[in-house]
Nucleic acid binder design. Structure first.
Lengths: 263, 263
DNA sequence: TTCAATTTCGTACGCTGTACGAAGATGTCA
DNA sequence: TGACATCTTCGTACAGCGTACGAAATTGAA
């Protein structure tokens, strides 16, 4: 009950990223701190946007403090008056990127609702694949992430799921969408590193593969691999995997609610 | 048809990691290269094992060339006579770690088969969480990964799925297991970074959160979050998520094969 | 006008992967 | 046996990373 909000022997345990995440919605917008000192030349939003654009264009490893600062003609250390460290910046990027998507109205049909949740996530992750690599602490607590989560829960609300099941269903759909994008990323990365297309790589390594695998037999893997290679000219096709897996998962969820309360 | 296997203007396009991966199963075991020169003081397997142990204990970032070399009293650069670069080592680690698991016999019941595939992957990733971060090019082509894949295909064989669907079903199960482990990792990482348990963090940030979220309302998220917080003392519980999601996915797959061939 | 607060940022440190080249060890061949 | 080719070992060095530190510049308030 002290007037002093922070005591030396009982330091503020609250996460510093939290206030940063919610800087636009806090009642007292932007704690004034003090009016003195030079104004910041660019806004934090601009910094985060630049970092997002950089990550979109060149991947997360290209998002270095020096590279971001250079975009504004600033020194690298200047960024540390905006953000405590790089990880905090990644959290802000994740939430801000999430805020760019518009959340469409949810259709009536339950199947279409669930599908929309997964496909929106899929599209977003394709636009910002680096989001998959931001595995930082609690980025989901930002304002845009929270809006998203609320919207996702609306999609699974009223189906007959328990509260816990609603959360878990959303998690399954989100995770599944992420995995598809990860597959795509893997292929793209492989093509970049090797400088060959998928088909070219298999052609270039066919001899080595058959020599090396001569002592082992993989009847099923061979059959399935051949089928896949004929269907599309690669080992896997993430787009079809999306359709198939999504259908199975939604089937399973809807079957579950149907059996739980048979009308 | 040249006797010379490699020509200067048509360099070997085959992936150098491939032969390294299959070094134990190749017909001509260990290309002799030439008998001259000192013997290597440790074997490649030992190096890879040490790297795996290091990753298990301290995480993938701790797996530096210098750290691995130090375990054997070697200089960092010495490792480059074993492996072309760090990424290649990660690929070897992934396959070798996969080889440590024993693949149990598959049960008769289709549901139990699919569950076993997912739970084996889950257990393995919990033992080696860094496997989730090894996103390198085609590590799945190693001998142990190939064995695993063949085994996984056996689990979904005979259910009535097409070849493509078999592959996709395995992918969905594997990806799902990975996502659960990722959730667990996220929690563990958060607790390590903040130095608080999940419950402590929520307590420490309760005031900030309610202040900051004052201007927004999340009726569903609040309800679901409260339910989750009461059920277990954290925001999520990966273990239950595993049971729930796995049941739904398997339901969906089995319903799919049932409808495809009634009887 | 003075001063405290704030932003800016040059320098430096420890860490990373790894290129380069020297030094040492070993087997083969004359 | 001596000479040599081939291999392993590894010290040094470099570029790039996040960021700690502290000085300089800038601004509003007193």
């Amino acid at each position: 009950m002290s007037v002093v909000p922070e005591q030396p022997d009982h330091p503020d345990q609250s996460d510093p990223s939290l206030r940063l995440l919610w800087r636009h919605r806090t009642a007292s917008p932007e704690e004034p701190k003090s009016k003195r000192g030079p104004k910041q030349k660019v806004s934090l939003d601009e910094v985060v946007d630049a970092a997002i654009d950089l990550a979109d264009a060149e991947g997360l490893p290209a998002v270095t403090m020096r590279a971001i600062a250079q975009r504004f003609g600033l020194g690298a250390m200047t960024l540390y008056s905006y953000v405590p460290n790089r990880d905090a910046l990644l959290v802000l990027m994740a939430d801000q990127a999430t805020g760019r998507a518009v959340l469409p109205e949810l259709p009536e049909d339950p199947r279409k609702r669930l599908e929309l949740v997964a496909r929106l996530q899929y599209d977003e992750l394709r636009a910002h694949p680096w989001l998959l690599e931001v595995q930082d602490v609690r980025p989901w607590l930002g304002p845009n992430m929270s809006d998203r989560y609320e919207w996702q829960l609306q999609a699974v609300d009223g189906l007959g799921l328990s509260d816990l099941e609603m959360d878990q269903t959303v998690a399954v759909l989100m995770g599944f969408a992420g995995n598809i994008v990860r597959s795509e990323q893997m292929l793209r990365r492989a093509e970049k590193v090797t400088g060959m297309t998928e088909a070219e790589w298999w052609a270039a390594n066919y001899d080595t593969l058959s020599e090396v695998m001569a002592g082992s037999h993989y009847p099923l893997a061979n059959r399935v691999g051949t089928a896949a290679g004929e269907a599309y000219q690669a080992a896997t096709d993430p787009a079809r995997e999306l359709d198939y897996g999504l259908a199975r998962i939604i089937d399973g969820v809807l079957a579950h609610v149907a059996e739980g309360s048979p009308d």
